[in-house]
Design a protein around this nucleic acid. Structure first.
Lengths: 211, 211
DNA sequence: TTGATTTAATTAACACTGTTTACTAATTTT
DNA sequence: AAAATTAGTAAACAGTGTTAATTAAATCAA
């Protein structure tokens, strides 16, 4: 009696279809410009059909982000495959920024919108799990460098270190995304700025030897 | 014959009234949540009246930002009143971040939204003018420190230096604004993070002596 | 194989949004 | 006083997220 199972599969299939179409439209035209009706049109369903799978637009957005966080985390993990702990931090930072500028709309969704604080239980369980939590990946590597004595004496708290590194790379990405075509400013090429901020972060936090 | 002058004054007066009401509502409830109708209601005019003074909501927003940029610039100038060029950079950075966390909604308008690129001639004329251009203020101070030989050898381009400093402080503020109440993360107190990023930026860019 | 029941999906509507058009009332000019 | 300019408005348009009411389809029980 596999009828409920089949129905479940079909339901999941439509759910996927909605998320894929929504992501494509969000990325292509931005969140604001993408209406529920347009998403519905793309999948050839009525707008109300979406509400059978997601509570509202915000919830749909949140689910998409959850998936995108995983890909960023994977990119970080791949970049962390290098021996020297300080260089590992640099690689992770560069992977993060590359993700940001290559997927600016994804990045906007993930890190540049006020999140409605609805802590789903499943999310909370993932905290600290390095296969889903990008912050945990960085934190792990930072602790490694910390234990190897690579940081200056005034940097001992792994969270402060992580959040300082994050501030630097996030700032570079966020400015690029929002300011890149502002006529007020003449921005240096992103690659230059990305390397500069990494140089500064590492030179500022780590002992001279590890340069 | 002061009739046109009087009319001009009255027009300007309503314009001010619109901008003040709009700013208050934007800051209090956010841009998205503030409709033109609500602004109109606040000033006891019809929604259409706003369109006699501003082309659209975006233009109204832009005018408000222009004013806010000036206050930020003033805060920077006030913070720059200190002799040592490196400490001056630190003070400016701290003033910038303080402005951001104390006026998060203003900051959102100014630095966290994609700007429709409509370069008004008057704006373009203000570029580089330190009384209206906050970036120019920083740039001036950076060049001062550069001439005093306070930067490391690998930092010679004032724009790259400015934009790296900016990335750092913007990252700290932006993360604070968007992430402060995310249950996923346990953020260190903002003051700690603000000082940490300033320490890192300066230690990473400046010669050891200037610590 | 019926009839009842659950499920999936839709149509139509509600209460909004930014913005425009057509109009009115007031003021200024001739 | 009549004409012309102006400030301001009401009503409407096209679109938004979302919900209530309704239909069509599939499944289950008899």
């Amino acid at each position: 009696m596999g009828i409920p199972e089949r129905r479940e599969r079909e339901k999941e299939k439509l759910r996927r279809k909605i998320m894929d179409a929504a992501r494509t439209l969000f990325v292509e035209h931005g969140v604001e410009q993408t209406s529920m009706r347009k998403i519905a049109e793309a999948i050839e369903y009525s707008p109300t059909a979406i509400y059978l799978h997601f509570a509202d637009k915000e919830a749909l957005l949140r689910e998409i982000c959850r998936e995108d966080f995983s890909s960023l985390t994977q990119a970080e993990i791949a970049a962390g495959d290098i021996s020297d702990p300080v260089q590992r931090i640099r690689q992770i930072g560069m992977a993060y920024m590359t993700f940001g500028v290559q997927h600016p709309q994804h990045y906007r969704l993930m890190f540049m919108r006020r999140v409605k604080v609805v802590p789903v239980e499943e999310d909370l369980r993932r905290i600290g799990d390095p296969s889903h939590d990008g912050y945990a990946v960085l934190r792990h590597v930072v602790i490694g460098a910390l234990e190897a004595g690579r940081f200056r004496e005034n940097f001992t708290d792994p969270d402060v270190i992580c959040q300082t590194l994050w501030a630097g790379v996030h700032g570079a990405v966020a400015l690029e995304i929002t300011m890149c075509d502002d006529p007020w400013l003449t921005m240096a090429p992103f690659e230059v700025r990305a390397n500069a901020i990494l140089d500064v972060l590492i030179a500022g936090m780590c002992k001279e030897a590890g340069a």
